[in-house]
Amino acid sequence: MTRDAGFDDFLDAVEAGDPYYLVDDDGGAHLPPMPHDPVTGEAGLTERPVPEPGEILTHTTTQIAAPQFEDDTPYVTAVASFGPVNITGQLRDIPPENAEIGQAVTLGVDRSETRDERVLVFYPV
């Protein structure tokens, strides 16, 4: 699979144990790829480490998937808060019925069952 600049760099960083977000001059937090402050257009965003663990804000168990995840169903997709940034990923190592809002999670990278492609995931703490 062709790499997506910025996003795959983020996955590399998660795999290396150093996930990061970007912060602008006003303290606004953004996820890569973000070339500049999306509000002001100012360049010069700086990297900061993503604080872990995060906390699940919401989740859903998907039964009907797009072709690239057809063999992965059912799977849990969640949005989790990691300090100043929220991140979307799949929840691993827990039965879907046990997924809970408020669950503490860490970031990881796994492979999809269907196409063996990298997926951003959450592991329960």
């Binding site: 804000l57 859903t60 998907t62 995840f69 949005v79 951003l120």
Partner: peptide, 20 residues
């Protein structure tokens, strides 16, 4: 990048909003 590569579908996206 952030949603489709995580397996998010459109029913899934609105389901996230509903559960929240």
């Amino acid at each position: 990048l952030w949603e489709i590569r995580a397996g998010l579908t459109f029913p899934g996206a609105y389901a996230l909003m509903a559960n929240r």
